[in-house]
Design a protein around this nucleic acid. Structure first.
Lengths: 156, 156
DNA sequence: AGACGATATGTTATAATATATCAACCCGCA
DNA sequence: TGCGGGTTGATATATTATAACATATCGTCT
């Protein structure tokens, strides 16, 4: 069982281990994984899908953890800027990172049918060559692919 | 002189030829390049930068071409879905296509210092391999790179 | 202990981006 | 002439995100 791509996986385990990894990383880097931040990450891990900020906020609000937009945007900022979650620009949505802690340039595979988003990775060779050709210094990449996941491909 | 990347180019010519190319393409495909659509494309070409929908709308409004959001979003939809312009997801902004008509999977190089956006391209080999590995069918790609353009690199 | 700085939270308000909906119009064509 | 597709006009509203400022918490320096 693994948690990469569209394959099945042991979800309870994947949530627990991801949280543990993030806790360790925060301790090591002296980052404060405060209750709200932790809960937002947990929600993203549990739901295991790309969620809008306001979807998350609704859950927080129901739990009494804050009801105003800045609450969730601050938590998301923290998670995203430390690599514990990602923003899917194409969807204006947020997703827990599948490989927290690892240094990576993620590729997101977005299924237009079931709206599942999988995090994959790829070598940067093609991209780096293109950037070098233009004399451009890469600092950050957004690579998102829309299409059909294996399950929806078969269904179609 | 060419219009690719961050190099200098003959801007007047680049606007004219791009417009002409789009006009030809529309004629060939029986697409209606109506005054508003044409003007929006022209604005994007003239400004030669990624513009927000409301920036464009302000110009249209000043010219009496419509003052409500749907006006510009409809025109942008037309241009984007026919490949005459692109949306830069990371910026929520729109950019005239540098290679209208050509079949391409663009890569956008976004300079965080001067906010210039260049359209480049790259082979899809790495990406296709990553998608194939996950059994994913690619329909559309968003590849956006943030960093520093050659000029801002030197300045820094 | 007291003062401070850095970080995080609470709260109100508003900005920025985008779409739904429905009526009217235009134009080619059966 | 009337129908149908595509386009436009206009109003309203949805969705996403940030500014600004007050308050609180916590470690640390003196």
């Amino acid at each position: 069982m693994h948690d990469i791509g569209f394959a099945n996986h042991d979800h309870a385990t994947c949530v627990t281990t991801a949280l543990a990894t993030v806790e360790t990383a925060c301790a090591a880097q002296k980052l404060q994984l405060t209750p709200t931040r932790r809960r937002v990450l947990e929600i993203l891990l549990e739901e295991h899908r790309a969620m809008g900020a306001y979807d998350i906020l609704a859950i927080l609000a129901a739990e009494g953890l804050g009801s105003q937009p800045p609450v969730v945007y601050r938590a998301l900022d923290f998670l995203v800027s430390n690599g514990f979650a990602h923003k899917i620009e194409k969807l204006n949505a947020y997703l827990a990172c599948t490989h927290p802690g690892e240094n990576h340039s993620p590729v997101f595979l977005i299924c237009r049918a079931c709206e599942t988003v999988a995090e994959a990775s790829m070598p940067m060779t093609d991209l780096r060559r293109a950037a070098d050709g233009a004399g451009f210094l890469i600092e950050n990449t957004v690579i998102e692919v829309e299409g059909l996941c294996p399950a929806c491909r078969e269904a179609a």
